Amino acid sequence: MNKKRLIVGIISIALLSQPVALTNSHATGQTYNSTTLKMGMHGQSVEDLQLKLKELGYFNHRTTGYFGSITQKAVLKLQKDYNLTADGIVGKSTHEVISGDKKNILVSRGSSRIKPIEEWTWFGKITDILPRGTVYRVTDIQTGKSFNVKRTYGTNHADSETLTKEDTLIMKEIYGDAWSWMRRPIIVEVGNYKLAASMAGMPHGADFIGDNNMKGHFDVHFLKSKTHGTNRINPDHQKAIRKAQIFLNKQLSLNSDGSQS
């Protein structure tokens, strides 16, 4: 009997001394930053990850706390943008990017791993932070005039429409009270971001917003976006985008902390 108790005791001690692997972060009590996250896991750490990805513009869905294919796709896109190993697993390096100070990440020039915001492309990043239905603000850098628009359609670039009659009036004033295909350098403000862009001021095609005194939509292009007709990059739009980026960089240099506001 004593021998049996001794064996049971040894087994119990051995089991207690072994680490227990749990994928549910509620049970482990581990924080977001200390947990490697990957497909199939669930819990508060995954929900925190989804919230962080949403803040950075990579996750545009309801947070569920489950690491499924949608979350993995968001992680992969972030990893590619920041030149990390694109494996869909949130390890130390990916945590460092996601958990870092957002403003410093966006304008950092000192790290070879981090792409500065001026290198974000339409297909690589911008289309995710400017999905169809997004309302944003356009500022013409030559006149300083601003107006509100909405991305209503488009795949190769942002087909957009003015929100109101007043916005249409301002846009038309920028073009000298006449619509024109002339490409103009602009700054696009969406969420916490300021992005260099180019617009062509000629309404055309379909429209979805009524009572704004604009029939059709106008084109807004970003770095490496393409036209719909030729499926090619338009040099005039890219030239205007470079002018807008130079203007934006000068604005940023005036900020004492170097951050975008």
Rank of each mutant, 00 (worst) to 15 (best):
W120A: 02
T134A: 15
I241K: 02
T28V: 03
Q72E: 08
A14P: 03
T121S: 12
V138T: 00
T121C: 12
S180C: 07
S93G: 07
Q50R: 03
V75W: 13
A86C: 11
R151C: 05
G57H: 02
V135A: 06
K215M: 14
P116M: 15
L22T: 00
Y58V: 01
T143W: 09
V138Y: 05
G88T: 01
G133M: 03
H221G: 04
G9P: 11
G57P: 00
I114G: 02
Y66T: 04
L254Q: 09
S256E: 14
T64Y: 10
I186Y: 00
A244L: 11
R242A: 09
D140P: 05
H61C: 14
L56Y: 07
A21C: 08
S45I: 13
I246D: 10
W179G: 00
M39W: 08
L248F: 06
I117Q: 08
E47D: 04
I7W: 11
H204P: 01
E47W: 11
G9H: 11
F218E: 03
I187W: 07
T71D: 08
G43F: 09
L6M: 09
M1H: 06
N234G: 04
L254M: 14
K4A: 09
N249D: 10
Y58L: 09
V20I: 07
L51W: 13
L56I: 07
V188S: 02
H26G: 05
G57M: 09
D128M: 14
T36D: 00
M199R: 10
N83Y: 02
S253W: 13
N249L: 12
H204W: 08
G205S: 04
D207V: 14
S225W: 12
A21Q: 08
K77S: 11
H237F: 09
H217R: 00
E119G: 06
G210L: 15
G258C: 07
S112N: 14
L84V: 03
G133R: 04
E166K: 08
K80Y: 10
S25T: 01
K102F: 14
T155N: 07
L22W: 04
V75K: 05
Q50F: 06
K250V: 03
W181L: 04
A14I: 13
L195Y: 06
G229K: 10
G68E: 00
E96M: 15
H42K: 08
V46S: 00
N104R: 11
E96V: 09
I187M: 08
S112Q: 13
L163W: 01
E161R: 05
Y82G: 02
Q251L: 13
M39A: 08
M214A: 05
N156T: 12
R62I: 12
T23Y: 10
T36E: 03
I129D: 08
G100D: 12
K38W: 09
G154K: 15
I114T: 02
G201Q: 03
N60C: 10
I241M: 03
N33D: 05
N60E: 12
K38P: 00
K92V: 14
K226I: 12
G43P: 02
F123D: 09
R183G: 00
W181I: 01
F222V: 00
D81M: 15
H42E: 14
K80A: 09
I7Q: 03
H95M: 08
G124L: 12
V107A: 06
M41A: 04
L130Y: 03
D159G: 05
S17P: 00
I246L: 14
L53M: 03
